[in-house]
Simulated scan of single mutants.
Amino acid sequence: MSGYLTTHVLDTARGCPAQGIRIALYRVSGNSHKKIAEAVTNADGRTDTPVLPAEKFKTGTYELIFFAGDYLRATGQVDEDILFLDQVPIRFGMSDPDAHYHVPLLLSPYGMSTYRGS
Rank of each mutant, 00 (worst) to 15 (best):
L106I: 00
Y115G: 03
G20I: 01
T75R: 03
L106D: 04
V28S: 05
K58I: 02
N42A: 09
T114R: 03
N42V: 10
G15N: 11
D79H: 07
E63L: 05
S108F: 01
L105N: 04
G93M: 11
L83D: 05
L106S: 09
L25C: 11
V51D: 08
M1S: 10
E55I: 10
F92W: 11
P104S: 04
T47A: 07
I65W: 07
E63S: 06
G3A: 06
L83K: 06
D98A: 05
A24Q: 14
A13E: 06
V103L: 09
A24V: 03
L107D: 02
S118L: 11
H100M: 04
T49V: 12
D79M: 07
P50F: 13
K56D: 14
L107N: 02
G3Q: 06
S118P: 15
M112A: 02
T114F: 11
N31A: 09
R22V: 01
L52Q: 04
R46T: 07
V9I: 12
K56M: 15
N31I: 00
K35G: 10
E80W: 05
L85V: 12
P53V: 07
V88T: 10
V9Y: 01
G111H: 06
F84I: 12
L85W: 08
V51A: 12
G93R: 10
Y115M: 12
T41H: 09
E55D: 15
V51S: 13
G20H: 02
L85K: 00
Y26Q: 03
R27S: 10
S2T: 13
H8C: 04
G117R: 06
A68E: 12
G76M: 05
E38K: 13
L106Q: 04
H102G: 09
D86R: 01
T6P: 00
P17C: 15
G76Y: 08
V78Q: 10
H102N: 15
D86S: 11
T7L: 12
A99D: 12
F66I: 02
L105C: 11
Y4L: 15
F66P: 15
H33F: 05
N42L: 14
S2A: 07
S2F: 06
G45W: 09
L25E: 03
D98I: 02
I21M: 01
R22F: 01
G20M: 00
M94N: 08
S113W: 14
D98C: 04
I65A: 13
V9H: 01
S29C: 06
R73H: 14
L10Y: 08
V88A: 14
I82G: 06
R91C: 12
R14W: 00
R27Q: 12
A68K: 00
T12R: 12
V103Q: 13
T75A: 03
Y4G: 07
L10C: 01
R14Y: 01
T61K: 15
F67T: 06
G15M: 00
A99P: 11
G45R: 10
V78K: 08
G60D: 09
V78N: 06
T7K: 00
T12W: 04
G117E: 13
R14N: 07
S108M: 07
Y71V: 03
R22E: 02
R73D: 02
S29Q: 14
S118W: 05
T75Y: 00
Y115S: 12
R27V: 02
A99L: 07
T75S: 02
L52M: 13
V88M: 07
A43L: 09
N31L: 11
L105K: 02
D96I: 08
M1V: 14
G117L: 03
T61P: 00
H33D: 08
K58S: 14
G3F: 08
